[in-house]
Design a protein around this nucleic acid. Structure first.
Lengths: 308, 308
DNA sequence: AGATATTGATAGCTAAAAGCTATTAATGGG
DNA sequence: CCCATTAATAGCTTTTAGCTATCAATATCT
């Protein structure tokens, strides 16, 4: 592409030194090389940048104007290179991450704080959605990674992060709320379960559990958010099934909020980190996994004795 | 200089097409050439700009950020080239011209108006000074051309523009002001002449005339400006010797202001255009000369009948 | 005024960079 | 499972950039 950055660089150097020889010396090239580049540039641009005498080299009026623009270009290129050098942290300096709602509200605040300490230049952009929506965005390249349920998508690599347990809550005058400690599936028989709307993996898990507990998922009150489900349960509309991240965070905040873990091996919600197999950031993702697991541990330790 | 403009251009093209092949086609280069340039660029910058799958090419988070800067650079270069192409008028689009005071005040307004009509993009910067000062600035390259008295400086080329006649004025009750028409040198005998301060060529000319007229130049009232000299003359301090550009402009403005041409072959002030012999704008100066002469003619025609 | 030293341009050659064609490797779709 | 598509790699050619040596112009110093 003409003019070349090299030519522009030479032009600025000659303008600053006011002499070809000195400029060539500063640039560590021979004077004829520099002369030729300048001559080419002038010919290609169709203008004369310098007025030459054997003693002095002066900018022409046009040259003065071009010099300003030339400096701008070199400055931009310098910044371009600096930006590249500055992008040596995790994922450069920006990561767009898609997460499930419970993760976004109750896990990411702690995780991002931790990441910020370790990678001060990393800017996290968080988008929420269902695992299916997030994986589509991941494959499209609209986001860089996903925290969601496991998947078998080809070209997606995953690492398991942690497992959420599932907890129930009901109205405060409900028999379920009278006791604490794990609750057996049999205790849920014939009680309508409240779950997130279909599309979320959690919905399917609750459906399976309902079958095993000889009950059903309420069709009338499929909540769009975990908060909505909890409110419906408190009002007596059924038994809310909540993932531990949400349930325990709320329970810690409100001691009167009774939640009980469902005592069943399938009452769990596996959470994994996903990325495109083609990513050039595999190592970075491995690091990210470690920090996310550490963040989960941190949350666990921060909980009251009740939920250890 | 790395990265090369060519590399940056390729980078933007691939980002826009989302494919190496299509970008290569649009750039009229082969796909391998483009691949290699991009690979080199990534290696040299130490970052990965694209995530490659065999189906799709996506920008990495870093790549997105670098793309913005890359576009800025290409935009600047485009403007750089456009500026060069736009600089095809007289002297590019800017001319710094040094002139004598009388020329600056009474000639340049008309001349620059005329030049502006002919060269709408030309911006004139005018500096005033003595011929000696102006020539020094010209040689230094601080200004591009000079309108001043003739010189024998080496490496300066000159073309004569016009000749100013010299005119006298005195107090309104002075015998000189009682008549009109040319005044002979003999009429000035023993009258102190008022002239610009030494340093101006006009001062030396008046000194010579004074000798021929059997009189002298007043030492007490060497004016720093032509206006000052006129005021002193009007107050009776002597006989002001003024160049025609000034004298006639003032006379036209004020009909009561009596000026009379000195009738002597040496009562003249030659004005020439000077430029450095090394300038690459010789043709432009030739054009400039024509327009300046035409401007002088215009001024002459605009004067009242009295001074034709 | 003539010798000398300094500066940029030119010539001719060498080295490096960029380009091309042919081929390979990877992968998604029929 | 084969075929079509796409990017990477290999090997060679062309173009560009750079270097040394030299020339031309000219300012400076006797």
């Amino acid at each position: 592409m003409r003019p070349t950055l090299r030519q522009i660089e030479y032009f600025v150097a000659v303008a600053e030194f006011g002499a070809f020889g000195a400029a060539a010396n500063a640039l560590a090239v021979s004077q004829p090389s520099l002369s030729k580049q300048l001559a080419s540039m002038e010919e290609e641009l169709g203008i004369v940048l310098f007025e030459r005498t054997s003693r002095r080299v002066t900018l022409t009026p046009i040259g003065k104007k071009m010099l300003q623009r030339a400096r701008t270009i070199l400055q931009d290129v310098t910044e371009f290179k600096a930006a590249a050098r500055g992008s040596v942290g995790l994922f450069g300096d920006r990561l767009t991450i898609g997460v499930l709602p419970s993760v976004g509200a109750y896990f990411m605040p702690i995780a991002s704080k931790r990441l910020h300490v370790r990678f001060p230049n990393l800017r996290l952009v968080v988008r929420e959605g269902t695992t299916a929506q997030l994986l589509e965005m991941l494959i499209d390249g609209r986001i860089d990674t996903v925290i969601g349920t496991p998947t078998n998508e080809p070209n997606i690599e995953s690492v398991s992060l942690f497992t959420e347990t599932l907890w129930v809550c009901a109205a405060s005058d409900d028999p379920l709320s009278a006791q604490s400690g794990p609750v057996a599936l049999t205790e849920l028989a014939d009680r309508p379960l409240l779950a997130l709307s279909s599309g979320f993996t959690l919905h399917d898990i609750v459906e399976d559990l309902a079958v095993k507990a000889n009950t059903f998922v309420s069709r009338d009150y499929q909540g769009a958010s975990l908060d909505a489900i909890r409110q419906m349960a408190v009002m007596g509309a059924g038994v809310a099934v909540l993932p531990s991240l949400y349930a325990l965070a709320e329970a810690v905040r409100d001691p009167d909020f009774v939640v009980r873990r469902i005592d069943h091996p399938e009452a769990r919600h596996d959470i994994a980190l996903h990325w495109r197999r083609s990513t050039p950031h595999k190592d970075d993702f491995q690091q990210l996994v470690e920090h996310l697991i550490a963040a989960k541990q941190e949350i666990r330790e921060a909980r009251g004795e009740r939920f250890k």
